[in-house]
Amino acid sequence: MIYVENLSKEFCIYKRQPGILGSLKGIFKRDIEIKKAIENISFNINKGEMVGYIGANGAGKSTTIKIMTGILTPTSGKCQVNGITPYENRTANAQHIGVVFGQRTQLWWDLPLSETFTILKKIYNIPEDQYNTRMEFLSEVLDLDSFIKYPVRTLSLGQRMRADLASALIHNPKVLFLDEPTIGLDIVVKEKIRKAIKFINQEYETTIILTTHDLQDIEELCDRIIIIDSGKKVYDGNIKNIKKDYGYITTIEATFSNKNDLSLSNLSFGFKLDSQDLNLNIEDNKIIIRFNNKKVAVSQIIACLINEVQIKDLHIYEMGIEDIIKNMYKAGELNA
């Protein structure tokens, strides 16, 4: 379905010169610096696959997505989506893909949501009966009915994201690109959106490519992940073991009511673990515990904490993608 071979993209960065004369001069001649956004990326994605495309900020995720959607032209390499080269034939490509950019809506700001769909129906030339079944399906899965009459600008972020997702799916695209679809949403809405994505993938065999910072998105949705780092593909394969093998460090941040309670010595917990697997840090009246959740459970740590001191506030953090990539490098898993 998607075929990418040796894809590279270089950007020219123009340095701005100071002053009025400088900016005038800048129109004609500029100092150029070349930055490689992605380098020799290759992969194949089959029909019906759900692939997580992950990497740190600025790793080149968006660049790749933009090439596959036809917004960017690559410097070299090949890319085909459903047999079409997107940047050479953007309109034809647009007809059978759907795109959601989490941070920017593609809806018509002032129009009621329902009208947006009428317009999209015309844009994509969707036959009446197909449109009706599709609409019925989407409003059920994404629960659109409660806000479909309101103008887009009045929707909440969660509603808007559901609307954006529906608008990207109304023409039954073969491929769906999701760039950070759950960014900024609360857990309930996130869950709803994930469920919908999963359902659509199963029901219609839609191929889905997903970029995200949220590990849970990937865990719940994708069987396969592609990791890129500094523009290069560093991993392509099964996700199952990644989190277990590399995302094992959990961080607990606890605030105490009494500062005097705290000293590192009386917080040894009695677990016999070396500093790699259990690590304590105290900042003011806050304690930060990083530990290997394969060797000791979250509940055990919290139980110990409660025994020792009075907790005012408590946060638990799972490992981020950046750290997992770092760990994978360390383990020699990534072919850097």
């Binding site: 933009k66 917004i71 647009a94 795109v99 593609q106 844009i123 994509y124």
Partner: peptide, 21 residues
């Protein structure tokens, strides 16, 4: 504001898309 992408993502003429808004 980086909002031009949307005009390239629909199978219609981008100028028409922009102007008709």
């Amino acid at each position: 504001k980086g909002q031009f992408d949307r005009y390239l993502l629909r199978p219609i003429n981008p100028l028409f898309h922009l102007v008709s808004e």
